[in-house]
Structure formats: C-alpha cells, structure tokens
C-alpha cells in the first residue's frame, strides 16, 4: 500500500521529479528499489526524530554486542575498592553493597535487555501476523474467534497477567522472553487483519485469484509483502514495550536473576534503598539507559508511522 507509486504524488512533487519519472519508466528492478528507498528515506528523515532514534539504537546495539570488551570488570565479582562506593575513576558508577562494579553491570545488562526486548517483540509479531493474516484473509469463523480472542487480550492489563505467568512458570531470561512475547501480539494482529482485509479486496489480488492462484501463493506473494512494512513498524514499537516490561519484572525481582539486566540493577538499587541513601549513581544511569534505548525505538516507530500512515502524509 505504502511504497507503491501513485500518480498523484508524481504529479505534485518536487524539482527532482522529472528525473523520478524517467527513472520510474526504466523497468529495472534495482532502480525501482533505489527510487523507493530514496523516497522512503526522504519521508523518514522529514523530521529529525527518525535519525535521532536510529543513532540511539545503533549506539546501544554496539555496546550490547561487545560487553566483554567494554566492561572493565566482571560484574559478579566483589572489588577491593570497597562497598557502596561513590563514583571514582576506577569505578565510574561506584560499587554496590557487596562491592561489585555497577558500570560493568550496566554494560552486561545492555546485552540482556536488548536481547529480551528484540526476541520477545519478534515472537509477538510473528504470532500477531499469523493470526492477523488468517483472520483477515480467510474471514468467517476463524476471523470471529481470533478477533474475539484479540479483543479479550487487549482488554487485560499486561503487567498483572505477566506477573501471574511469572508466578506460575518462574523467572529467568527464557521464560521472560516467552511470556512477554506471548502477551504482546494483540496490536499487530489487529492491524495486520485490517490490512490484509483491504489488500484482499484490491484489484491485483482479485486478478491473481481469477487466473487460479492458490491461497498460499496469494498470501506469500501479495499479502505478506504488503503487510511487512506495517509489521516491521509494529515490531519496533513492540521492542519498546518488551524492554520496559522486562525492566519492570526484573525490578520486582521476578525477571532476570542469574544474569544482569538494567531492570535487575534497579532491583538491586532499590534493595539498598539507593533513593534514600542518595546513591544516585546506582539507579539513575540504568533508568536513563532504559529510557534512551526505548526512546530510540519509539522515535523510529513514530517516524516509520509518518511514512506508512497515508492519512498523515496527505496533509
């Protein structure tokens, strides 16, 4: 729907337009993709938000990939520098109650927080896309049942439900990924359903069906490629929710236990009453990290939405 060329846009656009038309008329796949990307990039960078988001996310991804190199100490080992120490050159963010280096915990936490955020959002999006396409494309009973289910899950507040599941199945990184992923599919499923419903009715799909294409072919070749940009934008937003959910569960002590995540650093900070003792270095940095990385993804999602949402583009 969104990255296709429509004649109106061609007629009323920019000075590079003549060039665009002539390029468009050349039927090379590579060129078409190049033009599409150029157009997409132009819209994406229309506001500075998209780029800021991208930089933030890349920054944290780099840290997340290389924690062993960046972390000065082993986050689990007590240092000789003392307990509950304030920041110093040796320990930029001080140490905790048993003398572990908080900065190293933060670096190690980056990896786990991002890992949980990305994989959980991925799982959620896959379930949501599957449900959405089945409901939207096949319609009928499967649609009714799946959408009722979606409505119901949208209604339920997520965190208490996650807590119940954690209480039943126990904490740990894998369980967190599964629980957050299993509860986060609803938004995607609704959106994908609406989109596949509208694509299903379009002329080119009707035409494909008329020449006898199978459902599988139509779904894989027409519906899926057309919903993918939307699914992607949804996944990015899902990452924000997953990262924040992870931090919340870990903060309560039901999330990551053996390893380090930002949420767990906050959990340790609260156990030590860092807010009252004034040990700001223990709880302010992890919070800022969660905020920045989530903001990065949120900004990307917002800018993608600006590109993908035709209603906003019209103005």
């Amino acid at each position: 729907m969104t990255l296709e060329f429509d004649i109106d846009v061609i007629i009323m656009t920019t000075s590079t337009q003549i060039e665009t038309i002539s390029e468009y008329l050349v039927p090379t796949r590579y060129l078409r993709y190049k033009i599409r990307f150029k157009r997409f990039w132009g819209l994406y960078t229309d506001s500075p938000f998209g780029l800021i988001g991208l930089y933030l996310v890349i920054f944290f991804l780099v840290i997340g990939i290389t924690p062993q190199i960046l972390a000065p100490y082993d986050p689990n080992i007590s240092m000789t520098g003392g307990r509950n120490a304030a920041p110093s050159t040796a320990h930029p963010l001080g140490t905790d109650r048993i003398g572990r280096d908080i900065f190293s915990q933060m670096i190690a936490g980056t990896q786990i927080s991002l890992l949980i955020g990305l994989t959980a959002a991925f799982i959620a999006v896959i379930i949501g896309t599957l449900f959405g396409i089945v409901a939207g494309y096949y319609g009928g009973w499967s649609d009714t049942i799946l959408m009722r289910l979606t409505d119901f899950f949208i209604q339920l507040p997520q965190l208490p439900l996650m807590l119940v599941f954690v209480a039943l199945f126990g904490p740990g990184v894998e369980n967190l990924i599964i629980i957050i992923g299993l509860l986060g599919w609803t938004g995607t499923s609704r959106m994908v359903r609406a989109e596949s419903l509208s694509i299903k009715e379009r002329a080119f799909v009707e035409a494909t069906r008329a020449v006898g294409a199978s459902n599988r072919h139509i779904i894989l070749d027409h519906i899926l490629p057309n919903v993918l940009p939307l699914v992607f934008a949804n996944m990015i937003l899902g990452v924000v929710n997953a990262i924040i959910s992870e931090s919340a569960l870990s903060f309560l002590g039901f999330g990551v236990t053996g390893q380090w995540s930002w949420g767990r650093v906050l959990y340790e900070a609260r156990r030590e009453d860092a807010m009252i003792t004034g040990a700001w270095w223990h709880f302010i940095p992890p919070g800022i990290c969660i905020m920045l990385v989530a903001l990065g993804f949120a900004l990307i999602s917002f800018s993608l939405n600006e590109v993908l949402n035709p209603r906003l583009r019209e103005r």
Partner: peptide
C-alpha cells in the same frame, strides 16, 4: 501557487 518543501507548483 502551492509552496512545497523544495518547489513551487
């Protein structure tokens, strides 16, 4: 005339 980002229609 319409004044767009880079052009004037």
């Amino acid at each position: 005339h319409y004044f767009l980002k880079e052009s004037r229609v």
